[in-house]
Design a protein around this nucleic acid. Structure first.
Lengths: 237, 237
DNA sequence: CTGAATAATACTGTATCCATAATTATGAAT
DNA sequence: ATTCATAATTATGGATACAGTATTATTCAG
């Protein structure tokens, strides 16, 4: 029962994640929800008591979050939730635009079957993307911003899968994490929903025409457009 | 990493790094040197004894390295050094090309003073880059590959500083870390030194002409060219 | 001699404990 | 009353101890 069965892979995925990982996840949730606000000090003992665990796994979790950049560890002075400045947003969004643009480009190329090595994608994969977009249109019509937000994430994730570049996806996810630190949400801005949809349509149209460069450009602009909307939110929240 | 008071930075830099950080650094060194080879199991107790410390800080260091991607933590089964597949290289290099291309672009724009917000760079900053390149030329002429390698890193670092985008730099550094896992070094390939120099010259020339797009393109090709060289090394090392 | 079942071992994950550095509170002196 | 020095408190960093699980070794049956 201990030889290398294929079942092992399953068991690994089913195995309960280590405590420090669960704790890290709970902390991430709290940070994103601003229950632990940016800049706030993190009380190790307090949280450990609250979670009903010892400080050891909690500290390991904090090390992980620190490596991710969600918290900063000041030697001998404790742990603080990271805080983003406006300048950080100005630096992050263009990078995200670059990366997501690249995703759109690679996804389109794979759809067109131009990519060397990796196989050509079935048109069913693209249909899936169109379905998600259809959902988006529905949520927008219903002014259901929360569902729109969730589905929007799905859209970008699905596109990342189409691109099939794990490293690229990783970088994007890493980068997006920081944006979650600012809980401002450009989607609530008047007209932003409609604008966002139009941008998505442009991306999809370019992909359908198998114009990778255009898809990249539209995605690039889409992300920057999100930044611009966020900036408006700053002066009038 | 964000908007800290200058005083904090000083105090932080003077404070001795926590033990787990020192350990993480030592482990990185060993991993890069392949003393801990890709795929190898990491013996916590053994290393702790060797370093003369307990398992606690060592484990914290491993958590950090895991978050960085240098090692993988298998629950209940220990820690293993990460191993890159050829496919990973194929995915990483284009991303690096994208990011470093962007660095060249932003640096050039700042030199040209076209960037909004951030100040125009002095020509002295560009001279510094040219000096480093001159060093490179010398090391190449002397066939001193080790110094060339080190100075080459300086070149790219200096360029990143000119671009002045901390997040972009961070992503690049994070990405380059993985490449150090494969100890193959394209610079040792016949003719690669000369080729690399020529590519650098093209980048510098574009920057001097304040042609940001061209600078980006040349840098992009420079990185991909490095990948191509590496590929040759695979069949004949 | 081979393979399975079981016992022994080793390692991971977590909790507890201790030492040291940092912060706050207290008190004296100007 | 304010400021500086010193003491008390608290939190962090690290070591050690222990429990639970995976791996390896051993034994026994076929």
């Amino acid at each position: 029962m201990n030889a290398r069965h294929p079942v092992d892979a399953v068991r690994d995925s089913l195995a309960a994640p280590a405590l420090y990982e669960q704790v890290a996840e709970r902390l991430r949730t709290r940070i994103y929800a601003h229950e632990l606000a940016p800049g706030a000090w993190i009380d190790e003992q307090g949280l450990a008591d609250e979670f009903g665990i010892s400080r050891t796994p909690l500290r390991e979790a904090l090390k992980v979050l620190a490596a991710e950049g969600l918290v900063v560890l000041k030697p001998r002075r404790g742990c603080y939730v990271a805080a983003l400045a406006e300048r950080d947003l100005d630096e992050i969004f263009p990078i995200l635009a670059l990366l997501e643009g690249r995703v759109a480009e690679e996804a389109t190329r794979r759809l067109a079957g131009l990519e060397a090595g990796v196989g050509r994608l079935a048109s069913a994969d693209f249909s899936r993307l169109e379905e998600i977009h259809a959902d988006l249109e529905r949520h927008a019509a219903a002014h259901d911003i929360d569902r729109f937000f969730a589905t929007n994430q799905q859209f970008h994730s699905a596109l990342q899968e189409l691109a099939g570049n794990r490293w690229l996806s990783q970088l994007i996810d890493d980068t997006r994490k920081f944006l979650k630190l600012t809980r401002r949400d450009s989607l609530r801005l008047d007209g932003r929903l409609k604008q966002s949809l139009a941008e998505h349509r442009a991306i999809l149209a370019a992909m359908k025409k198998q114009d990778a460069a255009a898809a990249a450009l539209h995605m690039h602009n889409h992300i920057l457009s999100g930044r611009a909307a966020l900036a408006k939110l700053l002066v009038q929240p």
